[in-house]
Design a protein around this nucleic acid. Structure first.
Length: 246
DNA sequence: TCATTAAGAGGCG
DNA sequence: CGCCTCTTAATGA
């Protein structure tokens, strides 16, 4: 890493960030141009390559972040060392918002799933943002609630559903939140391996691979290395429903 | 119903 | 080539 990339006063050297970067994003959508200008002038902008950590689980939460472009994987490491992907975050969302959940360290590691552009601010500005900016608090707490809800849903699924249903549900969530419409279906918009999918659903790489192969034969999905496309979402919805025991 | 183990094919840098 | 991703089959909890 060269010195300029870690320089925390890059405002002198970088081009001014445009207000339009934030105006349409939920936490900032209610703000005046003047307020957004102030926020941007305090921000640091940085590009990350695919597959690198933006921050690490357990580290002091010195900054909070807004993902402007790309996708981020939120991962935790179990005591035995295996990675578990908690969720994926698309562009336009805040991350690393430890303060919002009353923490002084990051609760998970954030890895870029694609090349990404990220704004960040020192955590000491957080309370000021919450107090001064209309809608910032409600929108960010909504985000926190949505994420907790999603994780909770998955915990429930682990306990009550079979693997096939969990994987179907995971795929549906992925295309809903991070899907890109293409001519014949919806494609997950970032590279995702069978291993990643198995971590999301608490199964093995092999089972995830077999399920995808089986669904591909039935024409429900199409996949190649690190790419999954859903051709028939409705059929996946059917699979994702717990079988009624007749 | 699934995880585990094993063996290998094929892509990519 | 060496590593990563993915596939498939066999076995058994």
């Amino acid at each position: 890493m060269t010195a300029w990339m870690t320089d925390l006063s890059p405002r002198k050297t970088l081009p001014r960030l445009d207000e339009s970067l934030l105006t349409h994003l939920p936490p900032f959508s209610k703000l005046e141009k003047r307020e957004i200008r102030t926020i941007l002038d305090q921000a640091t902008s940085r590009r990350y390559n695919e597959g690198v950590a933006i921050f690490d689980e357990g580290a002091p939460a010195e900054r909070f972040f807004m993902l402007l472009d790309g996708y981020v994987r939120v991962v935790r490491v179990t005591p035995t060392g295996e990675q578990v992907t908690a969720l994926h975050i698309p562009a336009g969302q805040l991350l690393g918002i430890a303060k919002a959940i009353g923490r002084v360290t990051y609760p998970a590691t954030a890895m870029t799933a694609t090349e990404s552009i990220v704004l960040s601010w020192p955590t000491r500005l957080w309370d000021g943002f919450v107090a001064d900016y209309d809608g910032f608090a409600t929108e960010t707490y909504k985000t926190v609630g949505d994420r907790m809800g999603e994780i909770h849903n998955r915990v429930m699924e682990m306990a009550t559903q079979q693997v096939e249903q969990r994987v179907a549900n995971a795929l549906l969530r992925l295309i809903n939140q991070t899907g890109r419409k293409v001519s014949d279906g919806i494609e997950i918009d970032f590279p995702i391996t069978r291993q990643d999918l198995s971590e999301l659903t608490a199964t093995t790489l092999h089972t995830a691979s077999r399920l995808l192969s089986a669904w591909e034969k039935k024409g429900l999905v199409q996949s190649k290395r690190k790419r999954i496309k859903v051709l028939n979402p409705h059929a996946l919805v059917v699979i994702s429903q717990p079988k009624s025991d007749l």
